[in-house]
Structure formats: C-alpha cells, structure tokens
Amino acid sequence: MNHGPLIFLGAFATVVSSFWGLVVAPQLQLGGLQPKLTTGGDAVYPSQRPGLAAQGHAVYVANGCVYCHSQQIGQSGVEFDVRLVKGGTNAVKTLARLREVLPDLSDDSARQMIATATNTAPQLLAAGLDHATADLLDRNLKPTGAQVQIVQRNLGPDLARHWGRRLSVAQDYLYDDPVQLGTQRIGPDLANYGLRQTNETVILTHLLNPRAVEKNSTMPGYSFLFERRKLHPGETTPAISLSAAGITQDVDKTTGAPEFFVPKPAARALAAYLMSLQSDAPLFEAPLPAPPPVAAAGTNAPAPVK
C-alpha cells in the first residue's frame, strides 16, 4: 500500500459509508416527521414552545445544563394485565372458558369473579403477561361474549422513578433546536420536569440555591440569574425572600425593608422552559399506560384492544 490515492479513496469510502448509514438513512426515516395527532386524537403533538420558554431554552443551552441533565427516558419493556370487565351472555360457557385459562380457579370463585366483574369492578385475571399471551387470553374469552380489558404497563427504572410514563421517541424533540439529549445524569432526567414541578417559585428557588429546596443536592446555584434588592412598591415578580433562599435575614437598618432575590428575565425564561418540559403525549409508537381501573363497572368503556 504505497499509493496515496488508494488511501484517499479508502478513507473517503469509509467515511461516506458511515455518513450514509448513521446520518442519511436515519434522516430519510425521521427527517420528514411532522407534528401529528396523539393516540386519543384530541391534540396535535408536539407544539412549538411559547416565546418565554423558547428563550429559556437558549438560557439552558448557554449555561450548559445538558452536561448534567439528560432529557431522554428509557424503557426496558412492556407488560400487560388482563382484566375481566363483564361476564358473557353465555354464563356456562364463560365459566368453562375461564376455568380453562385459569386452571387454579375453583368453580365458586370463578362464578364469584364473573359476578363481581359484571356488577361492581373489573377483576384482574392475569398480570405481567407478554403481548402474545394477553392476546391469547382475550381471544379465548371473547367468543363467550365476555368483555376483557388489556392494560399495558411500561417498565423500566426511569419510569419507576416517575421521570416519565413512556419512553422518549423522535417525535418528542421535533421543535428543539439544539436538541439537548444529554450524555450524563449527574442530576435527574428533565424530560418531564414540567409535569413533576409546576410551581415557578419553587423552581426559581431551586435555581438560586438548590440546597434550600433539596438538602443534599449537588447542583450549583445560579445566583447570577438573580438580583438582590428591595422590592419596588407594587412589584409582582415572584421574588424569593432571603430566608427561603437559605440565607439569614439581614434587614436594612435605615428603612427596615427586607431584601429579596428578584429573578432576572433569564431566570424566569429558564423556569418557563423547565415547566414546558413535558413529553407525555400518548403516541402510537409510545403509548401511555392505561389509567388504573375505576371502581364502577358501568362506567367502563369496552376494552380498547390493541
């Protein structure tokens, strides 16, 4: 291999192949994404962030929040619960099929279960099934006229930490520029921070002095986003008192008026951005788990079978 051109061509070929594979091909797959209706069909997702939150995104980028906070929820899998909503019109057959799919069930308790399901609340038949098994159960019981509900549960440590209810998908980032996925979780994931924390004052206090909100927090305080001064008469900014920020009150001797930490516009924008972090819409590729069963059987709609 003593020819420069050969090395040039080889280098060109490898980098072009990886460019096609890792950039162009995903671009063909994902580049045409548009906002779309959520699974319920009641909203278009995602929507542009409102102006203040969009400014807050710039503050987030400029301060490098991404080096400690990811915005990406992982999900390790799904499992399904099957509930009996209503006994079939053919009671004998329902009973027989039920005994068939759940051999451990005694005759009496099966009858009891059908009655309870029909009259009061859905009854759990089996939990933690994979999709095929749940579907089989459903297909076995359906011919008897019984109504069965299959409920999806999303699994994974991120979800168990209540950082989100489903995995993050490409659709979630459509309007982010630059996208702040993050590579490290020195702090918690923020993909759904706006759902966990809706109180602007708490967020601002957290930005000012994290340890005033969370005793052992390892986040640095961003006091330079605040201004320490007395409030003007009639001012309505969500100012933070010194004691709330973890500093002993130091009243001005001459006037006696207390000082406050007043957020600068950047801090309020950042708070607005953090509150706008909500990637929680039910999507076809990332369904939300169904809400927990409600008590009254009559109000239960027929099971949405996937």
Binding site: S18, L22, Q27, Y173
Partner: peptide
C-alpha cells in the same frame, strides 16, 4: 443548516 429534531443528536454522535 441545522437538521430537525433528534437528527441533530444523530449527527452529533456521528
């Protein structure tokens, strides 16, 4: 000419 959405992460990782 920024690409849209999560493609930015793809380009960045590449």
């Amino acid at each position: 000419h920024p690409v849209r959405g999560v493609m930015q992460a793809a380009v960045n990782h590449w």
